[in-house]
């Protein structure tokens, strides 16, 4: 149905989970301490969190920091690869969009010229 976390009581690794809670667009999302932001989002059943110009949703594609599909804004810093950034308690994650009509996109572009996605 959706991506899911392997249950700790069924995990051959013998996990001893502690929760980690981040907010995603203001909504609290809880994952397992040690997961990346992408891992937390997927384990919460989310598959898409970035939207391209055509409005198509994207999430994890390469999973190892090569494709830059999974970019999110963390604590105001844009274009963080969710698959490579460890989730920390209290991280404020904001999803990103390049849909042209979206006002947030314009302000993001204007504010952060150094962002890796800022070559428009």
């Amino acid at each position: 149905m959706t991506p899911r976390l392997i249950r700790a009581d069924q995990d051959v690794l013998g996990r001893n989970d502690r929760p980690v809670t981040i907010t995603v667009d203001g909504e609290p999302v809880t994952g397992v301490a040690g997961q990346s932001i992408a891992g937390v989002l997927l384990a919460a059943g989310r598959t898409a969190w970035r939207y391209g110009r055509t409005g198509a949703g994207r999430g994890v594609f390469c999973g190892i920091g090569v494709c830059f599909d999974c970019l999110v804004t963390v604590d105001g810093v844009p274009d963080v690869r969710a698959c490579r950034r460890r989730a920390r308690d209290g991280d404020t994650v904001t999803t990103q969009t390049r849909v042209p009509s979206d006002v947030d996109t314009v302000t993001t572009q204007a504010r952060v010229p150094s962002d890796v996605d800022g070559e428009r």
Partner: peptide, 8 residues
Amino acid sequence: GERVAIGD
């Protein structure tokens, strides 16, 4: 690395 299965 994440103990997440991508699908069923």
